[in-house]
């Protein structure tokens, strides 16, 4: 509602329609900053707060908890544990099993496959893959989308036509098939590229493939926003005092897009987690033996009737994580854009 003291007077007749005061708005409310307001609204959204905490917790578990758990359990996520398989079925949760050479170990969530690998550790390391790929691909895709959308919306005309048509063409592709095919052909050769050892095998290629397929929604949304922002007085003013186009886009348009970008990035992360899991499930994602939630699921397909836990855990991990990002995104949307124009 109206938070600033507006001085627009009511001028009957002359200003008909212009003096449009929202009911219940006005008087007595202290002007607050946009971000402060947004934070106040966000704090009231309990689901979003819980989701945010969950995401932070998951990040900590994946990047700090995983090596600690590995140290504590005494085996790694890719280690083959002899006792992890019982009668050709992976053992269930909380099994104390023979790790070979007479020493026993604990499989917290049971084992994940016929090689007796530790499901718990694989889930933790899989979280790392999911988060890394989903977030990096989102950054890549959203930056591309924002750049294209801003340019299209700002320049309009010919440039806009080109970008809009390009988006339409890309959306006419059977994207999942295309991504699978790309991941299988190109991705396969990029898998060994780890960016000087920063990332695991396969992360970079997965990020590229997924990022390449997540720019068009942000592009469309940003374009629409810029189209309406472009007509606003402050852009006109910035132009009149002699700002360059690049400067107007960077200093005057981008700040107004931050809200949209944050909301859509969060929601895109959720989609990309599902995307990564799908690719890994189909065997064109993260190369084995490294764990990802997708390839854990695909292992589970073989014996989920005999050992349903194997399917349940990675499925729930994906569900909760995606849910958290979705709820966080919805909460951010409500907080950053209470009028629901996004």
């Amino acid at each position: 509602m109206a938070t600033q003291q507006r001085s627009t007077p009511l001028v009957p007749g002359a200003a008909a329609g212009a003096a449009d005061f929202a009911e219940g708005g006005g008087g007595g409310v202290v002007a607050r900053g946009y971000w402060e307001q947004a934070w106040r609204r966000f704090k009231r959204d309990r689901l979003a707060i819980v989701s945010g905490v969950f995401v932070v917790f998951l990040g900590l578990a994946a990047f700090i908890g995983a090596p600690l758990a590995q140290h504590w359990l005494g085996h790694g996520p890719n280690d083959l544990i002899k006792g992890g398989v019982d009668n050709f079925v992976p053992v269930g949760p909380w099994s104390h099993v023979d790790a070979g050479q007479g020493h026993r170990t604990l499989l917290v969530l049971g084992s994940s496959d016929l090689l007796g690998r530790d499901e718990f550790l694989r889930l933790l390391y899989g979280a790392r893959v999911s988060l890394e790929v989903a977030i990096l691909a989102t950054i890549l895709g959203v930056s591309m989308g924002v750049a294209l959308g801003t340019i299209a919306g700002f320049y309009g005309g010919f440039v806009d036509t080109i970008v809009s048509r390009l988006t339409e063409i890309v959306m006419a592709f059977p994207l999942l098939l295309f991504a699978i095919a790309l991941a299988a052909t190109v991705g396969d050769r990029l898998n060994s590229y780890t960016m000087f050892g920063i990332f695991q095998h396969g992360i970079v290629s997965l990020t590229l493939v997924i990022g390449l397929f997540s720019w068009f929604y942000p592009a469309r949304i940003v374009r629409a926003q810029v189209l309406s922002l472009r007509e606003k007085e402050f852009v006109e003013a910035a132009r009149m005092v002699g700002n360059s186009n690049l400067r107007i886009m960077r200093s005057h348009l981008l700040p107004h897009l931050v809200g949209v970008i944050i909301v859509y990035s969060t929601l895109t992360v959720a989609t990309n987690i599902l995307f990564e899991a799908a690719l890994s499930y189909l065997g064109v994602g993260l190369p084995l033996p490294d764990a990802s939630w997708g390839n854990l699921l695909s292992e589970a397909v073989q014996f989920y009737t005999l050992q349903p836990w194997v399917m349940l855990f990675p499925g729930l991990a994906i569900l909760f994580t995606t849910l958290a990002f979705n709820l966080l995104g919805d909460g951010l949307r409500d907080a950053l854009d209470p009028r629901g124009s996004l």
Binding site: L274, A277, A278, Y281, M311, G315, I318, L319, T322, L323
Partner: peptide
């Protein structure tokens, strides 16, 4: 709806086939 858009399609399939099929 939130669960539907957050769950993995493969997992939904497996869950349904485990419960209703198996």
């Amino acid at each position: 709806v939130l669960v539907g858009i957050s769950a993995h399609p493969v997992w939904i399939g497996l869950m349904l086939s485990y419960i209703f099929g198996f």
